[in-house]
Structures are given as structure tokens and as C-alpha cells.
């Protein structure tokens, strides 16, 4: 029985991460999910938020936590692997605070000034949630990057 999980994180723009990890914490739509090896098969929807995985440093036995801001998506968990499909996956180093804040302001302003319905409303809310997720990762985890 393997003691590691194979984690794949992909976005439509490419593969964000692929490798073996000791554990993963996913921002599930209904609450955070901590996944360890041998987890029961699971299919989960993800909300924009923070994904944490503990990377195995080969040989050294050191565990290193890595934080990523992810967008909405899905995760499939089997005993040995976790596949994360999301529309965004960025680490604290790749987040541009000003751009994200500007985006957040714009979306909030848009939400206030327009009466949005249906898809447009959803899209704006998702944009806001994504921005907040990125800012959260940036502010709380910048020191680890």
C-alpha cells in the first residue's frame, strides 16, 4: 500500500502541478476536505479557495507545505490519486496583488451598479470569490513562498 498520493492539478491553460504528495487539503464546495492516502473514492465540487498540499521532499523526509489559490472546479479522489480540475491555480509568488485588487474592485463595482441576473451574476460572483481566494493566499502565505 502506497503511503503517498499522486496529485494532478490541471487548468485549461496547462498543467499546474503533478507529483507525489503526502496529503492534500481541498476547498470543497461544502467545506474543506483533508485527503490522505487510501481515502475512499470521492468526487467533489470545489469552491474558489486555498489548496494546500504537503510535498514529499525526496529522501530528506522533510515535509513542505505548498499553498495555491484555486478557482471553481472538481476533484476526483481515488485511494492513490487526487485529480484536481480547476479554472485557476496560482501560488503566492505568481499572484499580482494590484491586478487582483483592481479586478476585485471592478467586479464589486459592477455588482453594485448593475442589476445582474442568471449567468452574469454567477460569473461576477465567481470572479469576486476568485479574487478573494488569491488575496487570502497572498496575505497569509506570502512568507512561505
Amino acid at each position: 500500500m502506497s503511503a503517498t498520493l499522486h496529485l494532478d492539478i490541471v487548468t485549461p491553460d496547462g498543467r499546474a502541478f503533478s507529483g507525489d504528495v503526502a496529503s492534500v487539503t481541498l476547498p470543497g464546495a461544502e467545506g474543506d476536505l483533508g485527503i490522505l492516502p487510501q481515502h475512499a473514492p470521492l468526487l467533489a465540487a470545489l469552491r474558489p479557495g486555498e489548496l494546500i498540499y504537503v510535498a514529499n521532499e525526496a529522501g530528506s523526509g522533510l515535509a513542505r507545505e505548498v499553498y495555491l489559490a484555486v478557482g471553481t472546479g472538481f476533484a476526483e479522489v481515488t485511494g492513490e490519486s487526487v485529480s484536481v480540475l480547476t479554472d485557476m491555480a496560482v501560488g503566492p509568488r505568481d499572484i499580482n496583488a494590484e491586478a487582483v485588487e483592481a479586478e476585485l474592485k471592478r467586479a464589486e463595482e459592477y455588482l453594485r451598479s448593475h442589476t445582474l441576473v442568471g449567468e452574469e451574476l454567477e460569473a461576477t460572483e465567481v470572479a469576486i470569490a476568485r479574487s478573494i481566494a488569491q488575496l487570502h493566499v497572498l496575505r497569509t502565505r506570502a512568507h512561505v513562498a
Binding site: G28, A29, E30, A40, P41, L42, L43, A44, A45, T78
Partner: peptide
């Protein structure tokens, strides 16, 4: 995959139909 051998069912969150 294991679930095919054992006939195990995926857990899902939120509830399967919605997901």
C-alpha cells in the same frame, strides 16, 4: 480502478445528483 473490482461507490460532495 479499485472501485470497479469491489463495486465501491464514489462518495460525493455535494450530494451526487447535484454534483
Amino acid at each position: 480502478a479499485k472501485e470497479e473490482e469491489g463495486g465501491a461507490v464514489y462518495l460525493s460532495e455535494p450530494e451526487a445528483g447535484e454534483l
